[in-house]
């Protein structure tokens, strides 16, 4: 076991095919679902067996000494023995030095592999905020679950909107903090299709322990099909249906209800075309421009009775999606003109 661990750790190089690439979990470690998991696990067990060996040795000696040299009657004096021995002390200093040097080296090697993504890695943007994950794909599709193709290197480019979070996928053996104000990166090659947990590993407040998501590893062809389906969320839908889809996918529904009861934000029922009054005393008619600007720059006009908590969707919503969303809002409102949405909306948005 030790030897095989040694050899395998030595053999792990970049995106090569390591020993133990995939596998079920063991007593100590969860299921292995990424390439790196193999080398991490080998190292884990390498350290484990070394530790177990020395621990058993020490504790056996401890037990033997405790029994063999126990004081049988009070006042019994020990037999003489040396109080130091340079040779022995040098040896038992040197052996651990060598061992930890080896462990360091293996750990370092595997880490370098884990932190050096191949150039052709598929990039997904990750945003952490209290208390949810947002994954943005190269084509702009946004999801709260992470879908990745198997057998293809994937790089996550991550940042946080508020406090430090940490993306942890135990099955992939990766973990990286998301620091506000900077991009941090992680990469992996998933090798085993299935669903695995994503945790937030850096304490981030009330719902820290609910900041859990799932990574769905799909076989490459299934992933491609899935991506195709989701790259244009509006395809084959009427504007109103598309708007409803946008409403669901982009997360509007978490704060804005459709039933007329205000949630964290105002309800969408009968919103379009109504008169809005703002905290700063201003008023405006909820027309296309108003909707567009409140989605792209939510802090500019805060409706009375609500907190300025909405994040901006600038860069996350496409023009067609905005159009569809407005069509959807119109369909919900009795103030709306009742006709089809005008072709051009979002004029004046950057």
């Amino acid at each position: 076991m030790i030897l095989s661990g040694l050899l395998n750790t030595l053999s792990v190089r970049g995106a090569g095919a390591p020993f133990l690439a995939t596998g079920d979990g063991t007593f100590w470690l969860p299921v292995r679902a990424s390439e790196a998991a193999g080398s991490v696990d080998n190292l884990f067990y390498f350290i484990f067996w070394i530790s177990l060996f020395f621990f058993t040795l020490l504790m056996a000696l401890l037990a033997i000494f405790a029994v063999r040299y126990r004081r049988r009657r009070e006042g019994e004096e020990p037999e003489p023995s040396p109080s130091h021995n340079l040779a022995v002390e040098v040896v038992w200093t040197a052996i651990p030095v060598l061992l930890v040097a080896v462990i360091f080296w293996f750990g370092f090697q595997a880490y370098v592999d884990m932190s050096t993504p191949p150039l052709n890695a598929y990039q997904i943007q990750v945003t952490g905020q209290k208390w949810k994950w947002t994954f943005t794909y190269p084509n702009g599709y946004v999801d709260e679950l992470l879908h990745v193709p198997a057998d293809r290197p994937v790089q996550l480019v991550m940042t946080s909107q508020d406090v430090i979070h940490s993306l942890s996928i135990p099955a992939f053996r990766i973990k990286r903090d998301l620091v506000p104000g900077r991009y941090s990166k992680a990469w992996f090659t998933a090798v085993r299709p299935g669903d695995y947990d994503i945790y937030c590993a850096e304490y981030c407040g009330t719902q820290h322990s609910s900041m859990i998501s799932t990574v769905k590893v799909l076989p490459p062809e299934e992933f491609d099909a899935w991506m195709l389906e989701h790259s244009d969320i509006l395809s084959g839908l009427t504007p109103v249906e598309g708007g409803e889809r946008v409403y669901n996918v982009l997360g509007c529904k978490q704060c804005h209800t459709l039933d007329g009861v205000a949630g964290v934000g105002p309800t969408f029922r009968d919103l379009f075309g109504s008169e809005r009054s703002f905290k700063d005393g201003g008023r405006a008619l909820a027309d296309e421009n108003y909707i567009s600007s409140s989605v792209l720059d939510p802090q500019s006009q805060i409706v009375q009775g609500f907190e300025p908590v909405m994040p901006t969707f600038k860069g996350r919503i496409k023009d067609q999606e905005m159009t569809a969303l407005i069509a959807f809002l119109k369909s919900l409102s009795e103030h709306a003109p009742g006709e089809e949405a005008p072709a051009a909306v979002g004029a004046g948005t950057p």
Binding site: T159, P180, G181, R182, Y183, S184, K185
Partner: peptide, 9 residues
């Protein structure tokens, strides 16, 4: 790690 910072964040 300066290169990772979002400029003027």
């Amino acid at each position: 790690y300066q290169a990772d910072l979002i400029p003027d964040f």
